[in-house]
Every structure is written in C-alpha cells, then in structure tokens.
C-alpha cells in the first residue's frame, strides 16, 4: 500500500518537473524561467527523498543538502542579475 503511494507520488513529481520544463522553454519572461528552475530543483529534492525511502538507504541525504544549497545560490544569482544587472559587484556603493 505505502509502496504504491510512493510510486504514484514520484510519478506525479516527474509530471510536475515536465510541466516546469515546458515553462522554462516557453516562458514569456526571464522571471518565469527562474521560477520554473526553482520548481524543478524543489521537485528533484522531493523525488530524491522518496527514492531514498524506496531503496531504504541514507546515502542520498547528502545529495538533498547539496541540491538545496545549489538551488539557493542559483536563485539568488538569477534574482540579483534581474534586479541589478551584475552578480558580483566590484566595490561597495552604499
């Protein structure tokens, strides 16, 4: 029973990633694409958590942490690029 629930959940996460990939390809503006990339990352984290339950292992938990960090830094970089036009500033101006 619980295994069937897990398999259906991971299938739904795959469908959600596919929909977000369509939004990345066809998104009208750059913030739409950044948001869709964040959705892909969050769904990947959830899918890896379900896979580690299904395989009954703790080896994938580090992957979740690293994906979280990279998604955080990537979203911040895109947001700063959209707002300021430059990601790493040369010197402090405030």
């Amino acid at each position: 029973m619980i295994e069937m629930l897990l398999y259906s959940a991971i299938t739904l996460y795959g469908v959600a990633i596919l929909i977000a990939l369509y939004r990345i390809a066809a998104g009208p503006s750059l913030p739409d694409r950044v948001f869709a990339l964040d959705i892909v990352n969050v769904n990947l984290i959830s899918g890896i958590a379900i896979i580690s339950i299904l395989l009954d292992t703790k080896a994938f938990l580090d992957v979740i942490l690293i994906l979280g960090i990279l998604a955080f830094i990537g979203t911040i970089s895109f947001s700063k690029f959209i707002e300021r036009g430059v990601i790493i500033e040369r010197k402090r101006n405030d």
């Binding site: 960090i69 700063k80 790493i88 500033e89 402090r92």
Partner: peptide
C-alpha cells in the same frame, strides 16, 4: 561545497 560558500559571500557583499 567550500567554493560555493565563498561564491555566496562574493554575491552577498562585494569583491573588495
């Protein structure tokens, strides 16, 4: 991962 910590520092404050 250590390099990503440095990159986050460089993004949050400036290079100098």
């Amino acid at each position: 991962v250590l390099a990503s910590a440095f990159v986050l520092l460089f993004i949050a404050v400036d290079m100098e």
